[in-house]
Every structure is written in C-alpha cells, then in structure tokens.
Design a protein around this nucleic acid. Structure first.
Lengths: 319, 319
DNA sequence: ATAGGTCTTTGACTTTTGTCAGCGTTCGTG
DNA sequence: CACGAACGCTGACAAAAGTCAAAGACCTAT
C-alpha cells in the first residue's frame, strides 16, 4: 500500500465514517484541507468510498409488478420517459448500471455480453470496490466499426468495479464451422466457455435482426445473410447468437461458426439481467423472454406497456 | 410509497447518481433547494443512499496477516490505539460496525449476541438498505441495569439496516433447570433457536469471568457464583453461556438454566465475527478462539500483539 | 367552523467544500 | 549532476451545501 493510498484511506475513513469535516480531517492528518478534498475525490473515484442509491424508485411501480406477474419475471425496473431526467435516453444506462451493481453479490462471477447497450452501461458504471468478483466475457471478439469491442466492455466494467476481468481471446465468428468447432475445443477456450456455467449473474441486451442490425454493422453478417436468417425464422440475437421467435437457438451457419457462451448454459444462470433501450427491439425481446433468457428486466415505460399488452392478449382472462 | 418518499427517492437519484447539484435537482423537481438538502439528509439517514468505506485500512496490516496465519483466522482487523482517531476508544465500534456491514450479504440471516460491545456497535451502526436480511437475537433477554437489553440490540441493528429483526422472547436465565428445559422445548422458542443454524454470520464479543463481569452486573449470576465458576474452569462467556479455557461449553448450573443459542451450532456458522474492545478480555478471547468461535476478528493493536506472542510461544519454531 | 397540533417549505444567512494557479519536492533521464 | 516532467501540497477565492426561524399547508378533534 503506497503511503498516499494510506492517507487517502484514512481521510476517507475519518470523513465518511466518523463524519469529521474536511478541516478536521486535515488537522488530524497534518495536511491542508485542499489536499483532503483531493484525496476524497480520488477515494470516491477509485471506489474506496462507495455511494449507492437504491433503484427502488424504478422497480416500485404498479406496472412493474404487473409485468413481473404476467411474464413470470423476478424483478422489473421501469424507466420513465417523461421529465425527471435531463435526458431520457441517458437515464436507461444509469439505471441499468445501478441495478447491475445491486444484483452483484460478493464473490460472484458475472458474465457480460456485448452490444451498444452494454457499452453505454459500462460507460456510466459507478466505481466500486468489489474485490473477489470476477467479470467474464460471454462472447468472442469482433472488430470495431464503432469504437468498442466485447473485450473492452468486460475490461472497463471490471476496472470500474475493481473486479477481476477475464477476456475471451477468440473471434466472435470464424469463416468456417470446422475452425469454430476446433477452436471451441481448444482447452483454454473450452474451459472458459464452461466456466460461464458458474456465473451467478449475466448481463446482456437483445439484438435485432434487421438488415442494419448490430451484427451486420460490425461485419459479422452481410445484410443478405441476415435477411435470409430473418426469413428462416430468426427472432433476435443473444450474445452474438441468433435465436428464433420462441427463443430457441437457431441451427444456422452463423451460429455454428460462432464462439460464444452456450445459450443452454446461460438459461441456467440464476440472474439473467436484460436491458433494452430501443423500442424497436420489441419482437426480439419477446423472443428472449419466451426463451427464458430474462429474469431481471430493465425497460422503458412504453416498452413495458407493449409487453404487458402482448402477454395479456396471448393469455386472455385466466383469473 | 408516500409521495414525499417518492420525491426523496428522485432527489437522491438525481443528486447521487446523475451528479446534479442541489439547485439543479430543485429546479428539476420544482421545490426549493433547502428542501432538497433536507430530503437528501433523510435519504442518507434512512439508507436509501448508502455511503460506505472499505475497511481495508484496518485489515491491511502486516500484523493482521500474521495473526490470520498463526491463529488460522479468516480475516483480522486491527484498530490502532495511537493518533488517527479523535477518541481511540470510540474507534473500535465504528470499525466493527463497518466490518459487520461488509460481511453481510444480500438475503443473509445474521445472529447478534449481546453485551456492552455489541451495544456500542449498534449505536454507531450506519444506516443501510438491506431488505431481505434478517437479524436474529442469539440469546434470551435480561433486565437492564444499564439501559440496553439483548432485544434492543437486535432491534436497533435491524432498524438501522432496514432489515427484519427477530427477537427471542424468553429470559436469558431462569431460576430452575427444569423450567429452562421446558421453555427450550416450547415450539416457538425451539424453532427460533434451531433457526440460528441457518445464519451465515454471527456477531458477538466475549465476556470476562471476573466477579464484576457483565453477567454479574446484570444480575444473571452472583459474584460468588461467578467466582466458583472461575475456580471450576470457566474461561469466558459467549452469548450468555460460560465456556472453559479450551472454549468448550461448561456443564454448570448457569449454562443449564440458560436460554441461548447452542454453542455447537454457532461453531458451524460460516462467519463468526468477534469484536473485543477491552485488553482485559485477553484470556476469554484466547478461550473463544481455541473453541472455534472466531473466524473474523476485530481487536486493538495491543491485543493483536499479545495474541500473536501467545500463539508463537505455544507453537514455537515450526517453520 | 376553528383552534391547535404536526409536518413541509422556503428565503436568507453561515459554514463547508471545490477549484486552481503557483510553489516545492521527488524521481527518472540525459 | 543538472534538467525537466510529474506529482503533491497549499492559500485564496468561488461555488455549493447546511441551517434555521418563520410562514404556510394539512390534518384532527372539539
């Protein structure tokens, strides 16, 4: 422990736990108050001091309760789109990050997938001191037409949480099924994919299957391939893999060429946290829920309404 | 959720998660900044907002590492007696409370015993929002020569943590062994005592066996009885029950008349957190450690030195 | 209806905290 | 050994947060 770390710890302790004022702390430690202020800021940034807010505000909603009941979900958080936040679009990742933090327990292993949504979340993730937690990458890497790659998401989240990050050093898609299969059997890769089963929590969003969807933009699939998949029954994308409208793994060339977490294993993870930002993801989300990929859900108010309407339409008057 | 709670939540969210200033929050919610300040204070008090500091400062100590190795303990926290804190005596409970909070996991059941030390700890326990946690009382109640009773400790801790508190509605000592036995078999009591086995964490201190010890002062034992126990091999007191110098339950009238957690069950609880404030508790602490009642220990620097010396003397040069 | 109580809210004021340029120290490097 | 870069510390000022008395809202019981 560096001497300045020691001072930072002491300052944080006296200030936050004993409730001393900054000048009192300064006198105690014989340095200027200005320095104390600096140390305290650093302590907050590093995660030595942890400030968290209950996300109850978002889960405490009649609509959330109804959704949980109707779709058999563990907990639902609803992000209002009206006032409250300065920028409604920026609210979702912040809520999701807080929820994610709340769902992590000490010593947990958590898996994170990849996508714009997950990246946004990583970007606003608060700093915390979760030593003992391990963050594992769920899917292989992909070149970056945007400036974020799967491994960067994992790394950034782990860094902010002071947790251990484990990256998956393999491409998301390979050019041949044979090579993908061989690589999956490579001990290093195989072990890591298997270790995903030990996760207590996974975090992902669901991808769409339009011809301008994320996978297409990143070059994993051509627009034509994606269109073909759509016609062949694709309903959405989970951790880089295509699922059908019922949430089942689709037996298609893309999936067979893919290096990513086994979807059947993912379903057995106790907490499956899904975050959906865009309203256009409605159909894919329905597929993901049907497939059992969701136990904890963060969505907008309007998406929540649509989901509820859909489920009520499907199973009318049972009570 | 009351409307004022709603506002409090929103204010806390905007201030702590979005990092808005109080005046910005005020504008956002259309109330005065002064009100925001009040709401924020309440949110902190109630535990909606949680500010915690790593206790690493106290466990990150060479001496702590040595103690852990020598006594086979999970983690040791050492509270320095020199400068740092305004009042060294007040430091111990604050550290202990922070450690206690750190050891609790979501959904845990935690047992708390009783004594001056535990009371001090309850007194400085920070507020938190640990819904789903259950705090159970480990030992029966005793009249209060001081102004704190076992059930008050449990209740206060549960209140501050926003946790559920379960009290043990029975006296700590009865006048006859027969009655104690009957009462222990009473379903309500029996179930509660049995449920202690489900705890993931217990918190206690160790009592001394002097003729002015806690049990004597509270009237559970006469000074003569205590003296006799001391001559009969008593080494300390855990959760109201007397143990011998090796930490074994002592078969004596007092123990047989006692309504409290089964010591054998306590030993099976994964995290057994012991806090010792007074240096005079050295011998009882040694007994408790030998008995296996301690996995996590919070002590003063001088006590740590004495413990280490003792263990090194007992098992000389093995490496 | 109204008097009396409690709980909120607020404006004005005080105290505490954040910031930053400038100075001093340390450390690695040429 | 001298030089410069990087970092830590500080004082002084600006910004933000805390506090409190007083006013207002709201409820309840007479």
């Amino acid at each position: 422990m560096r001497s300045t770390d020691q001072i930072m710890h002491k300052a944080a302790w006296l200030y936050y736990m004993h409730g001393l004022r900054q000048d009192e702390v300064a006198k105690q430690l014989n340095i200027s108050r200005a320095s104390i202020a600096t140390y305290l800021r650093r302590a907050r940034e590093i995660g030595i001091v942890n400030i968290s807010t209950s996300t109850q505000l978002f889960s405490d909603d009649v609509l959330a309760r109804k959704l949980e009941d109707a779709l058999s979900l563990e907990t639902v958080w609803i992000v209002p789109e009206d006032r409250l936040a300065i920028d409604p679009a920026a609210e979702m990742p912040v809520v999701a990050a807080a929820v994610f933090l709340e769902l992590i327990n000490k010593g947990d292993r958590v898996g994170v997938a990849w996508g714009r949504t997950v990246y946004h979340l990583a970007d606003v993730m608060p700093y915390a001191d979760l030593q003992g937690v391990t963050v594992v990458q769920l899917c292989g890497n992909l070149g970056a037409p945007y400036n974020y790659r799967p491994d960067q998401c994992t790394t950034e989240i782990a860094r902010r949480l002071n947790a251990e990050g484990i990256n998956l050093y393999a491409p998301l898609v390979l050019s041949s099924e044979r090579l993908a299969s061989d690589l999956r059997n490579e001990p290093v890769i195989r072990e890591q994919l298997a270790s995903i089963a030990d996760c207590q929590l996974v975090l992902y969003s669901v991808g769409g299957i339009e011809s301008d969807s994320h996978l297409v933009r990143c070059g994993a699939l051509t627009p034509e391939e994606m269109q073909a998949l759509g016609e062949g029954g694709a309903g959405g994308v989970i951790a880089g893999q295509v699922i059908d409208h019922e949430g089942r793994w689709l037996d298609c060339p893309h999936n067979r060429r893919c290096i990513s977490a086994d979807l059947e294993i993912i379903k057995t993870i106790p907490k499956r946290m899904m975050v959906v930002e865009e309203d256009s993801k409605f159909q894919p989300l329905v597929a993901a829920i049907k497939g059992g990929f969701v136990s904890h859900l963060v969505v907008t108010h309007s998406m929540a309404m649509r989901l509820l309407a859909r489920w009520e339409a499907e199973a009318p008057k049972r009570g």
